[in-house]
Amino acid sequence: MNVKKIALAGNPNTGKSTLFNTLTGLKQHTGNWPGKTVVHAEGNVQYQGQEYLLIDLPGTYSLFSNSTDEEVARDYIVFEQPDATLVVVDGTSMERNLNLALQVLEMTDKVIICINLIDEAEKKGIVIDEGKLSSKLGVPVVKISARNKQGIDTLLDTIARLLRGDIQTKPYRMTYQPEIEEQIKKLESRVRELIGHDYPSRWMALRLLDGDDALLKKLHEQIQMKGREVKSYEFGNAINS
């Protein structure tokens, strides 16, 4: 059976790990990300006969690769391209948390926003209109409380429907200052010519404008690997059989 990959992204202290634990129980594997001293945790979930592999990305404040954690999380979303990315946001500090969500929405359109700690937010008198947020962001928004196991079924159901294609997303598109937008437009078409539709070209263009050298290296590696994959395909099959 085809195992679907779901990445969990989010700020530190949002209860992302609690959600990960709630969903996967004790069936987890931990190790390191290849070549990095960053913890990699994954675990399996079954829902309605579909098997999911959850990947708990490092908790980060942003995805601009200011740190190894951010680089790992970003590279996974952009280059490994999970079937869906869950952005876990803290219901008690929406403003800062949406900051990360908006960054993820620039990188992929298979996103579900998962507002955690909703019980705590309600206690503090914070009321979140998830319908409105969902229509603004163009992706599903689910309110949950991972520690009280609230909203978990709705979340799993939303994941299933998104992956089946029952939910169409139209991610919120950031608009930057006119000068930056102009540059993005110029670069984007050329980026697309080079790397095709495999990667988010608008986002790539923006990162190039920001002078992200590490991304360039990584992208180059990826393209090389893809080339190799095609050539070594038969060889790989021979080994596997």
């Binding site: 929406m94 403003e95 800062r96 949406l98 900051n99 908006l102 008198g125 914070i126 009321v127 979140i128 209109d129 998830e130 409105k132 947020l133 603004k136 962001l137 919120y172 950031m174 608009t175």
Partner: peptide, 13 residues
């Protein structure tokens, strides 16, 4: 953007 989204969808009682 985050701020304006919050203004619309999040209210504080």
């Amino acid at each position: 953007a985050s701020k304006s989204l919050c203004k619309e969808a999040v209210s504080y009682q």
